[in-house]
């Protein structure tokens, strides 16, 4: 069993490292620093930490004023509050203005668990990906989170990084090098490709073991940069494996399924099945129970692969 680490824990610690290296890093939070783990930065650099209270619109606006004047602001809260709650501010003040603001959210998706539907962001990627110029990243584990946070700090322009509440198995080793816009092949395979993001990457790998027992050889791509998407990797997978399954802890609309389909539809259509939330809100429950109820398990991914193979010519 792989070691499990909460990516938000790594986020908090990486911010402290960045803060030490770069005096222009400023961190903002909206009354959630004990949960988003910006607490480490708050303790290390109190003068560069801004607690704005429960006021996400103002948090985004302040971040814009900081960014326009040479600072690199990281604004953090839960995914629901960091997107839909302040979407117009992100649209006009950040994206239209092309400002160097970093929005890093935690507690995305169903795996928030017991807090239920109001707290389970399942549409945040659809919203953020709809804005021109945004870079959108969904790290698969702690190793990738640390590197992605460093990458967005170095990248000039608006960035969104989506993290979760829980611990995730560490699937990447220290030799891994995250690069914005590049998909990463976690497993080679010829029969079909599973493209996954965030929490669904580990189940995607688990699904390949189940399928291998049935003689099905699956490729797995970690699509951690949702925008700009790695079109070349998608086209290559479509051409070489002829079937694609996407897997995400998000609505089918507007996230990975939509993004990958747009690429295949334009360049190389193949049979596809989407493992995603099907136009439903979440509910309270244990994370594992929720993933099972909403069809987001390794078994669901394996079934989806078999379905695409039936349609493969």
């Amino acid at each position: 069993m792989a070691e499990e680490i909460a990516p938000r824990e790594v986020y908090g610690k990486t911010l402290v490292e960045l803060g030490r290296e770069n005096p222009d890093i400023v961190v903002l939070d909206a009354d959630l620093f004990p949960s988003t783990m910006t607490r480490y930065f708050k303790d290390a650099f109190p003068e560069r930490f801004l607690e704005v209270g429960i006021a996400e619109q103002n948090m985004v606006g302040i971040a814009c004023g900081l960014a326009a004047n040479g600072k690199i602001p990281f604004a953090s809260t839960f995914a629901v509050f960091g997107t839909s709650r302040c979407f117009d501010q992100i649209r006009v003040s950040v994206a239209q203005a092309k400002l160097n603001v970093k929005i890093v959210v935690t507690h995305s998706g169903l795996t928030v668990g017991e807090d239920g539907a109001s707290h389970q962001a399942l549409e945040d990627l659809a919203l953020i990906c709809s804005l021109p110029g945004f870079t959108v990243i969904v790290p698969a584990d702690a190793v990738e989170t640390a590197q992605a946070i460093r990458a967005v700090a170095a990248h000039k322009g608006p960035c969104y990084v989506r993290l979760v509440r829980g611990k995730l198995p560490v699937i990447l080793d220290d030799s891994y090098r995250f690069e914005i816009g590049k998909a990463y092949t976690l497993r080679k395979g010829k029969d079909a490709t599973i493209m996954a993001i965030g929490t669904m990457v580990a189940p995607a790998l688990e699904a390949t073991s189940m399928l291998a027992n049935e003689g099905i050889d699956c490729r797995v791509l970690n699509m951690s940069t949702l925008k700009p998407i790695d079109e070349a990797a998608i086209i290559k997978a479509a051409q070489e494996t002829g079937a694609i399954v996407t897997a995400e802890e998000h609505q089918e609309h507007g996230g990975l399924a939509s993004t990958v389909s747009r690429v295949t539809a334009k360049h190389h259509p193949v049979p596809m099945v989407f493992v995603a939330v099907k136009d439903k809100f979440g509910m309270s429950g244990k994370p594992a129970e929720l993933l099972e109820k909403y069809g987001l398990t390794a078994k669901d991914i394996a079934e989806a692969v078999k379905e695409t193979l039936k349609r493969k010519v």
Partner: peptide
């Protein structure tokens, strides 16, 4: 600042003022 959607400018101004003070 890019504005037009009302109510966003004072937040931006607070951020700008904080940036000036930090420096």
């Amino acid at each position: 600042m890019s504005s037009g959607s009302l109510g966003q400018g004072l937040s931006f101004a607070v951020g700008a003022a904080l940036a000036g003070r930090l420096d």
